[in-house]
Design a protein around this nucleic acid. Structure first.
Lengths: 339, 339
DNA sequence: TTGAAAGCGGTACCAC
DNA sequence: GTGGTACCGCTTTCAA
């Protein structure tokens, strides 16, 4: 059905080898006439190269693999869109795999991508065995970029400075007069951003001469339920809380709901800050004050970083760290210590 | 680097042909001993078939193509997750392309998928030239499923009964005593779901003996801005409006904000219903009453339909129509004609 | 400038 | 039961 390079060769009376050269834009050693004949025949036959055949012989396809926790999560969906856009801009297709942070899904996804000889892989939101994964990919000559994770000595990481984002948010609360500040986050695993965010929280307290109270801190998962349940626990345990900092917006949203149900007005009684700034932050009333992570831009940066490796651009950045920014909206009010 | 079938052949002292047979699970004419030798060698060498080579000779890869307007849109993100999950369950990978409803992007995406010999394609949210696209795919023997669009005579469509969903929502408003009901939707194009939703609105009015007033209807795009602007226009033009039905949740949210700003309480002064039920519906206060479209399930259904074609299952459904359901939450109150 | 031919890693037909 | 081999469609080397 589809025209092959052989068909073009016959139709133009030019050898397959030459046709291939012309069709790949290498006109260096082809006469103008031959070139025109080939181009003309290809057009007439609606020739399109078989990408499987091409990739097979080149040992590399033009696809990019994207291993991501959950594309239905608005934060990752945004990031994913950024990656897909940047990939398309470079003429690449995107192969996606959702892993729900299951280590075995992550590994399986990576292997499948290798099997399809993708030109590169972006690893998003993986916290276990990342160096091993990177190694595995390297063994098959597949470059990769890592998003949301980094450790000393690693390269090709794209991440957000969770520590400073969290520090800024909590310092802001303190500056507004809050002294008893709760903290709710997700995932108790090692190496997870939570650690940096919690560290930012603690340091902000310390900087203000406040003591860290573990009873003000709760952990769960990065979702609405966690926010809802933990906020309830926190408020019950400590009536003095006037502000809560959350590990992400979903948690903040859950906390918001719990606060309302328990009769605490936001922000009049309790102030709230989130983290991420998914568009949902602006859809609630009052609009959520939060620390913005530029998800879409992170996606773009990751794919650009990948492209730099694939095309072997000489000078590239080793890692890219985005500074998150505090977006002041409506869920923070002056606290008891406000001057 | 990677072990090929040839390596396995050598390592097991079995011919390539037999190795291929064993590795593909065809043990019909292979001795138990040979089979074991092959399996053992493959395992030892960490053999993984080169999917490009296999797909090339089979003229079909195990990837599924997904052409979708915008994966960052929560509704499509959900649907996409459904498709990816169902694909993975069947051992297939997912190639995704965002088109932003640009006809030329849509066509380009379809062609690229053909070039990669995907096993099937899901076309989502395309409203122009759908039959042509389906034909193009058929010419290359690529089955496809169409989501969100259907017309008489078409097969393999998965969609939601917009008409009845809209009809139900508006009837509900009428039943609650509303008589002057505004309507805001998006996309003025022909064949777009908007038409069916508007038709449902009109019929619900007619069923209740109310006359259709074009001054109560506004169109724009399916986003927050449209809702915001059009609601303001509507309220200014007609002070009697006590309820507004919206083409989707984003519009409803925008309308909600405009209503608040203009001093109309929701639902005390004006009732509001949306369409879609993206999770945002429950993040506002009051929670949005809306017509739920099961995005995730639609995605699953579409991929199952595709699988049925690929595997040539004899008896399959021609089309699948989901009935949307009205989710009654907090944005509708009794209207002036309530008994 | 041009083209013949050797693969890329598999599949599957057919002979033994 | 087993294996030789002709492709799948394209790239690339190297000789002409």
């Amino acid at each position: 059905m589809a025209a092959t390079i052989k068909d073009v060769s016959k139709a133009s009376n030019v050898s397959i080898a030459t046709v291939s050269k012309v069709l790949n834009g290498d006109y260096s050693k082809v006469s103008e006439q031959t070139k025109q004949r080939v181009l003309e025949a290809a057009r007439r036959l609606h020739y399109r190269p078989n990408l499987l055949a091409r990739s097979l012989v080149r040992r590399q396809s033009s696809m990019l693999g994207l291993v991501i926790p959950d594309i239905a999560n608005p934060y990752y969906a945004d990031m994913c869109r950024g990656m897909a856009d940047e990939a398309q801009r470079a003429g690449r297709s995107t192969l996606i795999s959702n892993t729900d942070r299951q280590p075995q899904s992550e590994l399986a996804a990576i292997k499948t991508m290798i099997d399809y000889a993708v030109a590169g892989v972006v690893l998003v939101g993986i916290f276990k065995n990342v160096p091993e994964h990177v190694d595995l990919l390297r063994r098959y000559n597949v470059p990769c970029a890592v998003v949301e994770y980094h450790e000393p000595g690693m390269e090709n990481c794209v991440y957000v400075d969770d520590y400073s984002g969290s520090h800024e948010a909590v310092s802001y609360l303190i500056g507004r007069g809050h002294r008893t500040i709760g903290y709710i986050s997700g995932f108790p695993e090692q190496g997870h951003p939570r650690d940096a965010r919690l560290a930012g929280y603690r340091q902000a307290l310390a900087d203000a001469g406040l003591t860290y109270d573990p009873f003000l801190v709760e952990n769960g998962r990065f979702n609405l339920e966690t926010g809802y349940q933990k906020a309830a626990i926190l408020m019950q345990r400590n009536k003095d809380i006037t502000a809560i900092a959350c590990g992400n917006d979903m948690i903040a949203l859950g906390a918001f709901r719990a606060l309302r149900e328990y009769g605490h007005r936001v922000p009049a009684d309790v102030s709230l800050v989130g983290f991420d700034d998914v568009y949902l932050s602006t859809t609630m009333e009052p609009r959520l004050t939060t620390v913005r992570q530029p998800a879409y831009e992170l996606g773009i940066a990751a794919v650009k970083m990948l492209a730099a490796q694939i095309d072997e651009d000489g000078a590239r950045e080793k890692n890219i760290c985005f500074k998150p920014t505090l977006i002041k909206r409506d869920t923070v009010a002056a606290g008891p210590a406000a001057t």
